[in-house]
Design a protein around this nucleic acid. Sequence first.
DNA 1: GTCCACCTATCAACTAGTAGGAAGATTTGC
DNA 2: GCAAATCTTCCTACTAGTTGATAGGTGGAC
Lengths: 199, 199
Amino acid sequence: MRIMSNLTNTPDAILACARNLIMNGGYNGFSYADIADVVGIRKASIHHHFPSKVDLGRVLVSRYIEDARAGLSQLEQSVEDPRAILEAYTNHWAQCIADSSRPFCVCAMLASELPILPPEVAAEVRAFFRLISRWLTSVMERGGKEGVLVLSSAPEVEAEAFMASVHGAMLSARAYGDGRTFATILAPTLRRLSPVAAH
Amino acid sequence: MRIMSNLTNTPDAILACARNLIMNGGYNGFSYADIADVVGIRKASIHHHFPSKVDLGRVLVSRYIEDARAGLSQLEQSVEDPRAILEAYTNHWAQCIADSSRPFCVCAMLASELPILPPEVAAEVRAFFRLISRWLTSVMERGGKEGVLVLSSAPEVEAEAFMASVHGAMLSARAYGDGRTFATILAPTLRRLSPVAAH
DNA sequence: GTCCACCTATCAACTAGTAGGAAGATTTGC
DNA sequence: GCAAATCTTCCTACTAGTTGATAGGTGGAC
């Protein structure tokens, strides 16, 4: 191998590239040839690191889950107030969408085509939904107890509804081609959960 | 052609089949071969009715919009109360998802892969979002004026948030493999819009 | 006679995936 | 310490199957 081995790890570059491609077109929306072009490697070399597309997909999503887990725990360490946590969470996505760095959640994308996903990949995608759901439930629960979030339903229902709003808002932002749509949609959702809401 | 021409129209059969396939796997998740197998026709015969896949996609989505427009106007004729209209709208989708007849909105599916969609198809998908958005805005507006809907934001914002909830709930229902998730998520959304909500 | 719906046969491009080799890096045996 | 063996990473070249799409023909209907 040449000189870049320290700076950039090839498997990681492949995964990053595949992630970007999936964000735009889903599981059937990218090919090994696409990745090869971007990474500057041959198709066969991708197979060396990820023998099959299913392997690549499975590793990609499980890494995505790890990253999400790390991000969420870091978020909870830097922000205490549950309402502020939800705000920071949506702000994070609003920024990712606005600067087009991550215009869509990889797992939301893959969930939409779940019926035609290889079972191994589908299982990972479901695991992601359970992770976010559990995390949001715990945030809602704590916020309710501390009185900083107004829950009009059970915490787990509130969590699912919140997650659905986030994913739906991503979709609308994409459909309208305007990242600001995301923040616009999430604003009332956050306001309703806030006890200082002016009714 | 044989005997079935009166009972079933081939182009319609092709469109219906493609619609089902798109609902499960999106634009790249189906091929002319798939349709040929289901409809019982040869690939080349599909090209006779729809010269290119873009033609098929464009016609399919524009028909979908027509159907939606008709369905919405019929809904507004049979139900008067704006709040009841929103309920009927979500109930309709809840039923479609529960009996697996239409487990996902074709245009929500296609919107997720908008960046890799042929421009002609993408334009139609955007038109669908505008249609639903405008319709929901008018329902919200009227409901607010009549006092049967509690709007905590501008009608158009409320409309976008509602649409996002519906699409996000579809996604979650698919991810969890449980149609009841859809109704569970939409329930609090509808309750919040209702003036009889117990706070 | 012309049109329509469908057919067979074929196409080039692309799909994921394999075989086997070259070359540098690493480990091992002495 | 050094050479032999092995491992790692990437390569060229290839496969079988699928993709959307075309050319041209058949046979029945108006």
